[in-house]
Every structure is written in structure tokens, then in C-alpha cells.
């Protein structure tokens, strides 16, 4: 039911782990719904120098997290904010319809991390949240 790309990113996920001196951390989803994504970023000079993730969830949740980190690493913050769930899905050669919410979660996790970066650095910006992640009726537990 999953594409080869999804299976590849599930079995060999890129950028798994934590960044100890991360200056941007975002968590979305909740355990009740069966998926949580936590994104760590190291942002320097407005550029995402490093990104790591941890995910509790199904195969699609792991694969979309992995792909999302690949798509934003090395990008500027503004470029990363333009990442859409659609782009993540396309990069994975598609997802089954029931799993599309996982890609939304990946997009929201990137955005949540960047919002955290803004907040920590006194940047008075609000990341535009589409609210699509309302599939779980909550963005995160924090």
C-alpha cells in the first residue's frame, strides 16, 4: 500500500535523533491519536544548518517526518515555511488517502519548530498555521 520511497524512508529514515543544542524545537500531534512528531533544528544566520526528528507513529508518519527534514535542511527559514504537505507527499511518490494527515503533521511540525525559534529569539512573527492538523483536535501537548 506504500510506495517504494515511503518504505525506503520508513526503513532508513534520514535525520533521526535529537540535536542537543537545538534552538528550535516543535512537537505536533498527540499520543491519543497515534502520532507525534518532534522536530529539532539548529538555525544559524537564518539558515537551517541541521534538523533531526523523532516520531511516534505509523510508517507514513515516520516517512513524512524523514522526507520533511530532507526538504528543509540547508534552506532559509522563509523557504522552509513554504514547505507544504503536498510537496512532502509528492516527494514520497504519494501516500494512501487515509495517511494524508501524516503529511499535514510533518508540515505543521516544521512550522511549530520555526515558531519556537521566533519565540526564543524575540522575533515577533506568527507562523501561519492552516489548522489542517485539527484532525487530532490539538496541535501538541505543550
Amino acid at each position: 500500500m506504500y510506495s517504494e520511497k515511503v518504505m525506503d524512508h520508513f526503513s532508513n529514515p534520514r535525520n533521526v535523533g535529537e540535536i542537543e543544542d537545538a534552538n528550535a524545537v516543535g512537537t505536533v500531534g498527540n499520543a491519543k491519536c497515534g502520532d507525534i512528531m518532534k522536530i529539532y533544528m539548529k538555525i544559524e544566520d537564518d539558515i537551517i544548518k541541521d534538523v533531526k526528528f523523532k516520531t511516534f507513529g505509523c510508517g507514513a508518519a515516520v516517512a513524512t517526518s524523514s522526507m520533511a527534514t530532507e526538504l528543509v535542511i540547508g534552506k532559509t527559514v522563509d523557504e522552509a515555511l513554504k514547505l507544504t504537505n503536498k510537496a512532502v507527499v509528492e516527494a514520497l511518490d504519494g501516500l494512501p488517502p487515509a495517511k494524508l494527515h501524516c503529511s499535514v503533521l510533518a508540515e505543521e511540525a516544521i512550522k511549530a519548530a520555526i515558531q519556537d525559534y521566533y519565540d526564543k529569539n524575540g522575533i515577533e512573527k506568527k507562523v501561519d498555521c492552516s489548522g489542517n492538523c485539527a484532525h487530532c483536535h490539538s496541535h501538541s501537548e505543550h
Binding site: 526503513s11 497515534g34 505509523c58 510508517g59 508518519a61 515516520v62
Partner: peptide
């Protein structure tokens, strides 16, 4: 605890 069943299933299936 701490993991989700479908990813467990997929990993075992592989």
C-alpha cells in the same frame, strides 16, 4: 509502550 503498531507490523513484515 512508546511505539505504534503499524510501524511494528511493517518492520516485521519486511
Amino acid at each position: 509502550k512508546y511505539i505504534e503498531g503499524e510501524s511494528l507490523l511493517l518492520s516485521l513484515d519486511m
